[in-house]
């Protein structure tokens, strides 16, 4: 121990692990209460429907965050991948009559493949150019769906079995959050972040930046596809208007508001932004204005988003920046986990 002075924020991993446990316990408690509400019918059918949409939006926001937030590749095509998953799953259910879990996985794989094919050429572009290219991709998907016979064209596709229960949506959302948290807290996750921070340096450190950009894009697309499948089997009817550019923007707003590079942020923002318009129904025609003002206000106060790049567990640490100098040395090993 040289000098004995602690600069900046340093903290023993032991207490950060406790903080993460507290955050996790709180999340589990909230979710348990919601579940009790749903299964005892204290939460009505209508609001349960909104909760399903919350879960779907969490999946969309978390998966887009991997691309836009962690890897720093500005994609505006998420509604396109969602549409691919929605239509693919609906067709699999209607024509193949596969069981729902298999349909979900199938939708994920198909979207991932499309993501891979789109990512390979477009990820050579940077910043604004990538945004425009992915925007174009989303529109192409919509136009293709609009003109195919099998998708029902502009009339849409109806008669999809209502297989998305709150339980299924919840399970898939939880799995998504676990998968993405585990990815970003690994060497692979650090490769994504390195690309966001400095692509040239990342490449010089032996990271295959092309591979990892395409990987982020494919994983993000896969889960957007799964979200689309849940959406299709929740609405029971889909048409191209559900997957316009506006939808991509909605998801993007959740990611930016929650914090680019924070999974907790995406979860909170997706929840708040889905429930808020409903909660504001009381003020009828002014609700969209209130919604917009809230967004502008938040962006002015916290341009980095609610959470920045931090997670819930990190926020609990803020109070105890100092100290723990003596204990740090022994406690180090666990930092990877």
């Amino acid at each position: 121990m040289k000098g004995g002075m602690v600069r900046g924020r340093s903290l023993s991993p032991a207490s950060s692990r406790i903080a993460a446990w507290i955050a996790g316990a709180l999340a589990v408690l909230c979710l348990a209460l919601v579940n009790v509400g749903v299964y005892t019918y204290r939460i009505d059918f209508y609001f349960t429907g909104i909760l399903v949409v919350v879960m779907i939006n969490i999946i969309l926001a978390v998966s887009l965050n991997l691309i836009n937030g962690f890897t720093g590749q500005f994609s505006l095509g998420h509604a396109g991948f969602m549409a691919v998953g929605a239509y693919a799953s609906a067709l699999l259910t209607i024509y193949m009559e596969w069981p729902f879990p298999v349909v979900l996985i199938g939708a994920g794989i198909i979207s991932a493949l499309i993501g891979f094919l789109i990512g390979l050429p477009t990820l050579r572009l940077r910043g604004d150019y990538l945004a425009i290219a992915t925007l174009g991709f989303g529109e192409i998907v919509r136009v293709v769906i609009l003109n195919l016979k099998i998708t029902g064209g502009p009339r849409g596709l109806g008669g999809i079995a209502p297989k998305t229960t709150f339980f299924i949506a919840e399970i898939v959302a939880i799995l998504t959050v676990i998968i993405f948290s585990n990815i970003v807290k690994s060497s692979h996750g650090r490769a994504f972040v390195a690309i966001r921070e400095d692509e040239i340096a990342a490449e010089a450190m032996g990271i295959d930046t092309t591979k990892y950009k395409v990987l982020a894009f494919s994983i993000g697309a896969a889960f957007a596809g799964i979200a689309g499948a849940l959406f299709a089997h929740h609405q029971m009817f889909i048409d191209p208007r559900s997957f316009t550019f506006t939808r991509s923007i909605e998801i993007l707003v959740m990611v930016v508001l929650g914090g680019l590079g924070s999974i907790s942020g995406s979860i909170v923002a997706a929840t708040v932004l889905t429930i808020l318009p409903e909660a504001l129904r009381g003020i009828a025609q002014y609700r969209m204005i209130a919604y917009a003002l809230l967004l502008i206000g938040l962006m002015l106060i916290r341009p980095q988003g609610l959470f920045g790049t931090k997670e819930i567990g990190d926020l609990f640490r803020l109070g105890q920046r100092q100290g723990n100098e003596g204990r740090r040395a022994q406690a180090d090993g666990g930092e990877g986990q």
């Binding site: 585990n182 990815i183 060497s187 490769a191 972040v193 390195a194 400095d198 032996g206």
Partner: peptide, 27 residues
């Protein structure tokens, strides 16, 4: 060209990336 907004610790850890012997599934 450091990863400016990351911690000193993470800057080094990133460079061990290609030597890490586990795939995405095990992560």
């Amino acid at each position: 060209r450091l990863f400016k907004d990351l911690t000193v610790f993470d800057n080094i850890r990133i460079a061990f990336h290609y030597q890490a012997q586990y795939n995405l599934a095990s992560a």
